[in-house]
Amino acid sequence: MEADAKKPGRLKMDGWIFFLVGLIAALIVGWMVFPLLLYSEKSQPLIFSHASHGPESDAGLDCEECHFFYEDGTFSGIPGIKKCMECHEDPESPLSENSEEVKLFTDYVGTKKEIPWLVYARQPDCVYFPHIAHVKMAEIECKVCHGDFATRKVPPTYKLNRLTRYSIDIWGRNIAGYKKNTWDTMKMDDCADCHKRKGKENNNACFVCHK
């Protein structure tokens, strides 16, 4: 042992391997294992295809058909089962051969239960977000914040943050919080940056977005 220790070069290498092992292991844990542990995957109650409902599809519905503003300016958000039933009214005459539609009839239309959608953009209760100020007044397109949902055939996997209980889409799907597109992350800083960029710095006063 003493003889080994006297070999100068090997001694250095030996030690740094431990360092490297630690470094790499930590990087693996931090970048790959941690996200797996942090998020649990959940599936939406129904596999809803925006693509087959949207303007380009056979159904040819405008976005506003389901996601509209009420008279008082509040946003309807995700439509309730009543809206679905306007078209999917009769289980005897389904509109498609899709098994998801069968599920819609048996599980929700039949039992008059609302569909417990998992909302990717759900913000904490202390956040106030008026869609009308952004969509109608500032003329910002939906996809700027939500991404291009309208053409999706299958909804993205919903990943629930085990700690915060919010969707992964708030922090962003990139664990480093790296943002390529405007819709990649939905944190407070994103709101603030956008306000700043658009010269609406006054809208960064606390009460504008907090309630």
Binding site: D72, G73, P130, A133, K136
Partner: peptide, 11 residues
Amino acid sequence: LMRAKSKAYAE
């Protein structure tokens, strides 16, 4: 105030 603003925006 926010409620009133939303209503105004809607109009």
